[in-house]
């Protein structure tokens, strides 16, 4: 592959992410990885539902008493918006508009960082209430489910940042276009998982 080949929006293919065999392989392979990730999160959700509100006798914590929706709702909105901004970034990637893509990715990263900050604040709040990782089966299942999602957010943000910095000087080519595309796909997956966490953990938790 020739990295020095210059593209214009006219010569840039409609689907740069699958225009090469390497791109096609990455595309299919990444969807399969997401299948494995789906099974992983399904297992974590199942465990959470089995262990929800379970603890040593006399445990003071329960999902309905612990969770409060306003903060989590804000986090949900932030993450959903970041998914939208990453769509804008990919729109510009497909139109070979590198600067606009970088700008929208930058906004995506900022929103992701805001989400992460709020999640750390939330965890910190629970720990101060005494609801630590080792408190009960309920707390272990909660922190592992939501924490695994949080770790995915950290990885996704690191991936975006690494790609943006690495390619800042040289722009888009057929070698890095699939990478940007897959990072965005990963970000959508993280967002979808959060929708389920918001529903299963927080909404169903508050209802009781």
């Amino acid at each position: 592959m020739d990295l020095n080949k210059r593209y214009t929006p006219q010569t840039w293919p409609d689907h740069p992410e699958t225009a090469t065999l390497e791109g096609k392989n990455k595309f299919v392979g990444f969807w399969l990885l997401l299948a494995a990730e789906t099974v992983t999160f399904a297992s974590l959700f199942a465990t959470y539902l089995a262990l929800k509100d379970k603890g040593p006798s006399g445990m003071e914590f329960s999902a309905s008493g612990l969770f409060e929706l306003p903060l989590v709702f804000a986090m949900t909105m932030i993450l959903l918006t970041s998914s939208l901004t990453s769509v804008y970034a990919m729109y510009h990637m497909k139109n070979h508009n590198f600067k606009a893509m970088q700008a929208w990715l930058g906004i995506t990263v900022l929103l992701g960082l805001a989400f992460l900050g709020l999640e750390i604040y939330e965890f910190n709040h629970y720990v101060h209430l005494g609801f630590g990782f080792t408190n009960s089966a309920f707390s272990s299942a909660f922190y592992v489910l939501v924490g695994t999602h949080g770790a995915h957010v950290v990885f996704g943000l690191s991936w975006f940042i690494a790609l943006m910095l690495r390619n800042a000087k040289r722009g888009l080519n057929m070698y890095n276009a699939p990478k940007f595309y897959l990072a965005a796909l990963y970000w959508h997956f993280i967002d979808v998982v959060w929708v389920f966490i918001f529903t299963v953990v927080y909404l169903m938790g508050v209802i009781g």
């Binding site: 603890g55 990782f133 089966a137 272990s140």
Partner: peptide, 15 residues
């Protein structure tokens, strides 16, 4: 120190 399988802490060994 987690409690997934520890029955005394609300865990479930069948998981």
């Amino acid at each position: 120190g987690a409690n997934f399988f520890d029955v005394t802490m609300g865990g479930n060994t069948i998981i």
